[in-house]
């Protein structure tokens, strides 16, 4: 079959993973699956938040843009969750719809409420640059499935970075009101930056399968503060939040997000349309 030299020549997909599961090959270890779960949860939860903007954005183009970005993230989440679930004989839907709050391992940044448009753009700037750095590096993972998902995602996230940077400039250098709101958004979300880059013992043991979060901080610090300053804004000087998202600790808004995301699947398990 295709397992010799997979990294170079082959194709990786949800179906591939399912087939390999049947033969007992290609299944991630529990530790790799937990890593993929965290990445999938980050993408899933931010996708859910961005979906809330549809029909509420300040202009039609932004309805479309935020919807498109959310759709890309949902695609990444589906790939990561399918891969993670294959270790535990769970589907992507089992993981998305039938876990409870403490079982979700997303960073807290991604669950924070949308706030106003500038607040969402502040979250998008932090998130997009983080994803861009992460997927750029994960493309070189020794796990071919993670590398393939990252290679696809990296191309899409580049557009998301561009979108958020352009908006931060426009809002920061726009009117007094847009400037005030953009700064308020950054101030409110900055405490959640630190958690993205904390060393994680569960990742240390994965070697070159995973990207150690603390190694991404330099790239983030080279990019984001520069965008903030050139937009006439100030890099917030605030203490980091306690964090703990990867360990299942979430902020008070998270239960409401899950309720909305999961209610249909839980009321009608197995429903299709």
């Amino acid at each position: 079959m295709r397992h010799t030299n997979r990294a170079v020549s082959t194709a990786v997909s949800a179906e591939t993973i399912e087939r390999e599961l049947e033969t007992g090959l290609g299944r991630p270890s529990d530790a790799v699956a937990r890593y993929a779960l965290g990445l999938g949860d980050d993408a899933l939860i931010l996708a859910q938040r961005l979906g809330e903007w549809i029909a509420h954005a300040p202009e039609l183009e932004e309805d479309v843009a935020l919807g498109n970005i959310g759709l890309d993230l949902l695609g990444h989440a589906r790939s990561f969750l399918t891969y993670a679930g294959s270790a535990w004989e769970k589907s992507e839907d089992d993981l998305a719809y039938f876990r409870d709050e403490p079982e979700f391992t997303n960073h807290q940044l991604f669950e924070r409420p949308n706030g106003d448009f500038a607040h969402t753009i502040a979250r998008q700037l932090i998130a997009s640059v983080y994803f861009d750095a992460l997927y750029g590096r994960l493309t070189a993972s020794s796990d071919p499935t993670l590398a393939a998902i990252a290679a696809k995602a990296a191309k899409e996230v580049a557009y998301h970075v561009d979108h958020s940077v352009q908006w931060v400039r426009r809002l920061g250098l726009g009117t007094d009101e847009s400037h005030r709101r953009m700064q308020a958004g950054l101030d409110a979300l900055w405490p959640f930056v630190d958690e993205l880059f904390r060393p994680d013992a569960a990742i240390e043991v994965l070697g070159d399968v995973a990207v150690r979060p603390e190694t991404l901080r330099d790239e983030f610090d080279r990019t984001v503060p520069a965008v903030i300053v050139e937009s006439g804004l100030a890099v917030p000087a605030v203490a980091p939040a306690a964090g703990g998202g990867r360990a299942g600790v979430h902020t008070e808004v998270f239960g409401h997000l899950l309720a909305e995301m999961q209610v249909l699947a839980r009321q009608h398990p197995g429903a299709t349309w």
Partner: peptide
């Protein structure tokens, strides 16, 4: 017939 959706190499 089996149709597989493959991610790598990226389109």
């Amino acid at each position: 017939v089996t149709v597989r959706t493959v991610l790598a190499p990226a389109w």
